[in-house]
Design a protein around this nucleic acid. Structure first.
Lengths: 215, 215
DNA sequence: TTCCCGCTTTTTGTATACAATATATATAAA
DNA sequence: TTTATATATATTGTATACAAAAAGCGGGAA
């Protein structure tokens, strides 16, 4: 059996998705019994999932009170952005020697697709493409722990989709971030590691963008 | 009740310490029933602790097989060292403006104490002092998430004490790392952020030291 | 009203029970 | 002897049960 998923894992996905989609909001209480009723399972796997989610920073656990969705404050989002920026920069520098011409082409193609998505105002599509873009160099950095940590950290500030937000404002911001993707491609081509590191850290993951993820 | 600890938390500490002290070694199987017998509790809090430990990277979980102590390979230790190096460097730079003359004095005092500990071959003492030293600037970096992440990461490669290892070899290495602590103090004094970052990242957390933590 | 106290209900934390899978053992065939 | 197969045992995953603490509620006192 290849991808066996325990009930705990299902609950994990369920809550996780709820936080991302925005159905679960900051500070929302997670009632174990309620969840077990919703999924027609017992409380045991529910509690196990909640403990895991708390360990990963998505929930906070208050002894004898229960679990709540960890609120993402602006301060916390900025802190996370800063960390992610540093680690992404590190990954890019590590990947620099492993990036193939095909990787560069894929990045360029993705940049084009992203522009289309932005113009069409399909922001969830843009989001997915952007993940793919970053994953190209992450997957070549050679540091598996780094890849994992970044995945967990990013999970913490990606909440709810972009629906119901000002499309023009988002467009402007994403046009700029995608322009930055272009710059990054250039730096990869030039193999300018110092500039690449600085650019990713200080420009692309500038904490001013953190506000975007705070709900 | 201030520091309420659930049974789950006790198990967490128990296993956690076991890994650090070396009584639990890489790939050791964790039998839930056995642990619950040892601590005179039921399996429920045991499982909860194991899940949390797996989420934090200390254990690995194999579906329907159970939990094992995650082996720390040289590759993994190096990967973690590299990440910690980058994040420590980041923290130091962030802390630079917040470091007071008193902090510097404390660091200098600690450096002296560490030299004493090394000369007396009391390496566990050195270890504790060194943690305290690094915590001085970490606590002033202003990024709480960073502090947390570093704590978790370090937990993963600190295994078993230094007893039963060549004291002369350890002495030599620690003398050098403590000399580096001195260099760091100088850079803090000079407020030379670029050099400080580079030094911590490339010298103090050089991956060649990773081998020290692999058992 | 507002605050406080005691009672009831809910919810968490833990123990126990049981089903399903994995592991170990024994037996038989090559 | 080795390999394969059947059976017994141990272990995990999940459900249920229960005790202890927290939250909710109603009635009085200020």
């Amino acid at each position: 059996m290849y991808n066996y998923m325990s009930l705990k894992d299902h609950v994990y996905e369920y809550i996780s998705k709820g936080i991302q989609k925005g159905t679960l909001k900051s500070n929302d209480k997670l009632n174990e019994q309620e969840i077990s009723r919703e999924l027609n399972i017992s409380r045991t796997p529910v509690r196990e999932a909640l403990i895991q989610l708390a360990a990963e920073g998505l929930l906070i656990s208050e002894p004898r009170k229960g679990f709540r969705v960890k609120p993402l404050t602006l301060k916390e989002a900025k802190d996370l952005y800063q960390i992610v920026g540093h680690l992404e920069a590190m990954a890019a520098v590590l990947a620099l020697d492993q990036i193939s011409p095909e990787d560069i082409s894929r990045m360029e193609r993705l940049k084009g697709d992203m522009d289309e998505a932005i113009n069409a105002h399909v922001f969830d599509k843009y989001y997915k493409l952007q993940v793919e873009f970053h994953n190209i160099y992450l997957s070549k950095c050679g540091n598996d722990e780094l890849i994992n940590i970044l995945k967990l950290l990013k999970k913490r500030f990606i909440r709810q989709g972009y629906s119901g937000r000002d499309p023009e404002g988002l467009s402007e911001i994403f046009k700029e971030t995608n322009r930055q993707h272009g710059e990054m491609i250039e730096l990869f081509k030039k193999k300018d590691s110092a500039q690449l590191e600085k650019y990713i850290k200080e420009v692309h993951w500038d904490i001013k963008y953190a506000a975007l993820d705070v709900v």
